[in-house]
Design a protein around this nucleic acid. Structure first.
Lengths: 278, 278
DNA sequence: GAGTATGTGCGAATGGTGTTCGCGAATCAA
DNA sequence: TTGATTCGCGAACACCATTCGCACATACTC
């Protein structure tokens, strides 16, 4: 009586109580319909974000676009921020998929319109090539989806904090892991020079180990990966948010490439001609 | 007749036509009052931003805070975005002042509450110390003013583009220049190693020279400075926007320090014990 | 001084927003 | 069929940015 009938969390449907009888994966007709309209809702919201940006997203207008009443939206979404949270989670996965493609892996969820990735480096390419590929893919996604990038990496939704084990956190781990993969491979092949500053003792004490990323990773490497991500992210962030537009009217890709090249050199990944086959 | 009487741009007062007679700097009583209330308005808006963040800033509530009617606000501000633009310009200057303090320079505008800067490195300190000082000051300001950082460096106001010679652009140049100063000094002292990747020919062609920063700077150095800024900015950005909060519950300063140390080493700034006196 | 233009502030009004509530219709489990 | 649950919606509330016309105070001109 106290709570409303509808349950935005989506898992409160009676079908959930399929205790034994209809145990097959075939969820009820209602569940499927619900999932479908929710997907449509997210798609509409994503279009809206792509057009006007996250801060200007109007719940009423995504309702219009999805052919629904504004009130009806609340059967599927907790609030405006809740909808944005859903988009954020999807956005993380989208980035991760892109990076996976650049690494020559199949994307987890089939991309309906697979966009062009500047460089694809398969498993047999050298670490320098693979590192460059993911780094460029990171920037390419950001430049191609500036508003989604802003949604994910920009000013966070005021009250929002990612639940430690929630979907956004795991999806972000996917991004970090993809960026880290070439370096980890190089490390395991014994072809990586880690800056000595990463071994500072107070540093080791400050970081909370992230088991999900790679269980038994030396912490110097782990910390190096974090700084590396930040380094790449900073260039992309400054570009996408327009702080370099007046310096590079045609885009910052050359600057970014140069920085990645310097990074690859510093890490010792570019030995000789970077011959393939590990 | 077409335009309203009030002029939000602020310089339309009749006193501007002080042709000869009252040529002294004593602007009329009205001008001063106007300037004062505008400052109060900006202060109120800044408090509001600090509390609820830029995207949640409500014009009505800054009007309340400033003891004014919402409509009256429009005599001083073009629109909500216009007010945010003013805050952005001030924010840039605030960062620049902080960095100047860290470099041992006097801040341009007297800070009413001079906050603690983690490390002040005067003119006679070595480039490694000075570099570390500005870098730490950059992070310290961001961590102390997260909402203003988001306002300046986060998702930009949808339609806003910084006018090429406008106040925000010049203020941003101040920030860039402060961050660059130690490196430039090291370069002039012949103590700087520039990564060879910065000399790529297509890179040189892509960047538009920024005369304001430093007229006759070799472009490799110029580009190095840009990547350096991005590198620092990325770490700070990830931290302030909360993407590292689950990894570093007590703040990312150790990680940041390590990255700065690595950067200093790579640039060759830390020769021996970094003896002072150039 | 008076007269007049101009800046200043405000109340009211408009159209947009997020969100809640109650009700009818559709769907499901029995 | 019966009863319970979900879906979707219209109406409503409170808040928002912005505009307009009007009253007042100030400044300049004569």
């Amino acid at each position: 009586m106290g709570a409303r009938a509808g349950d935005p969390s989506g898992e409160g449907t009676g079908g959930d109580a399929a205790t034994g009888s209809t145990d097959t994966g075939h969820l009820g007709r209602r569940q499927r319909s619900r999932r479908r309209t929710l997907a449509g809702l997210k798609a509409a919201a994503l279009e809206e974000v792509r057009e006007v940006g996250a801060p200007a997203l109007a719940l009423r207008s995504v309702a219009r676009r999805a052919g629904m009443s504004p009130a009806g939206l609340y059967r599927y979404v907790e609030s405006r921020d809740g909808l944005l949270t859903l988009l954020i989670a999807d956005g993380y996965d989208d980035v991760a998929d892109h990076l996976d493609v650049a690494l020559g892996r199949p994307a987890a969820q089939a991309a309906d319109a697979p966009p062009t990735v500047p460089l694809i480096a398969g498993q047999d390419a050298g670490p320098a090539t693979r590192m460059t590929a993911v780094a460029l893919a990171y920037r390419a996604w950001a430049v191609d989806h500036p508003h989604e990038f802003g949604l994910i990496f920009g000013d966070p939704v005021p009250g929002y904090v990612a639940p430690p084990q929630g979907p956004t956190t795991t999806a972000m781990s996917r991004v970090g892991l993809a960026l880290a993969t070439p370096v980890i491979e190089a490390f395991e092949a014994g072809r990586l020079t880690i800056p000595p500053a990463m071994a500072a003792t107070d540093l080791q004490a400050a970081v909370r180990p992230m088991e999900a990323l790679a269980p038994d990773l030396p912490s110097e490497l782990y910390l190096l990966l974090l700084t590396m991500w930040g380094r790449l992210h900073g260039q992309v962030s400054l570009e996408v948010f327009g702080h370099h537009a007046w310096l590079f009217p045609d885009g910052c890709e050359p600057l970014y490439r140069a920085d990645v090249a310097a990074l690859v050199t510093e890490l010792g990944l570019a030995v000789a001609v970077d011959q393939p086959g590990r």
